[in-house]
Nucleic acid binder design. Sequence first.
DNA 1: CTATATAGTCAGGCAGCTTGACCAAATCGT
DNA 2: ACGATTTGGTCAAGCTGCCTGACTATATAG
Lengths: 148, 148
Amino acid sequence: MQNSQAMALSAALLSAAGELTQRIHEGVVARGFEGVRPAHGFAFTRLSRGGATATDLAAHLGVTKQAASQLVDELVRKGYAERRPHPDDARARLVVMTERGWACAHAAEESAADAVRPWVERLGERKARALLDQLTAVAPDGPIRPTW
Amino acid sequence: MQNSQAMALSAALLSAAGELTQRIHEGVVARGFEGVRPAHGFAFTRLSRGGATATDLAAHLGVTKQAASQLVDELVRKGYAERRPHPDDARARLVVMTERGWACAHAAEESAADAVRPWVERLGERKARALLDQLTAVAPDGPIRPTW
DNA sequence: CTATATAGTCAGGCAGCTTGACCAAATCGT
DNA sequence: ACGATTTGGTCAAGCTGCCTGACTATATAG
């Protein structure tokens, strides 16, 4: 693969990721969840598996723990999450999603399905799945970097 | 395709885009170009086709013209680009890349190739090309959104 | 030849992140 | 068992990159 193609791949990846994020976000807002940002959605994907600490979130989002803590503040203030004492560690606080948090995460999934649908229609089910498979093969579990 | 898979696709896309951007940037810095950010690289891809106005860049990057103008200031100050009077429009300024700008863009291409190489090795040449084709099919020419 | 649109700049503000310093609880080493 | 180090979290201050709003100068339309 030539240099220019590598560059094209990067650009396509970025453009696709940006557009998808944008559309998902719009869909979430349209479903009545105001005041949320994409970064909150990325936090939900981590919180939805039994909660997480602020430090966990920081690693998952690729930011400092202070930034993650601020983000949790915001989620709590807006009613999407709450802090509980951590069962095993008196220093830590376990952040868990509220009912409203789950509703928002669900809305995000619906919105994501809406955003991806035109892609599936254009590529066909088989190629769309291949795209997903190939992407998950190359980008398994690095931190989500909502900004650069 | 189910909702959760759409979400997985989005997450994989974001993670891949973030990692790739990060690696390309590191490669560019390693080649001796300090003080550049990924957004500058995205600007180069637009400037490299005969130059562009600040407003063109704004549209390409998905930011306001003021932000684009600031970015051009930075590129000029660091020696990567220069402003020239626009041949057809006395209001406008044509931003073109300097010699150093071209060198930096070239370094970015090399770096992109390095960053993509492990993916090609993991997927194989054929699937890697399929990935590129499918991505360019779904995300043709939307604005690059370096931040959200 | 006025009226509107467009390219660019100047000024001010702010959201989201960073670094640095600190406290309290957990873990390690001896 | 106990001091030393690590780890989870907070507070405070500051900065970067972007935004909105207001403005000038040139181009384009009616």
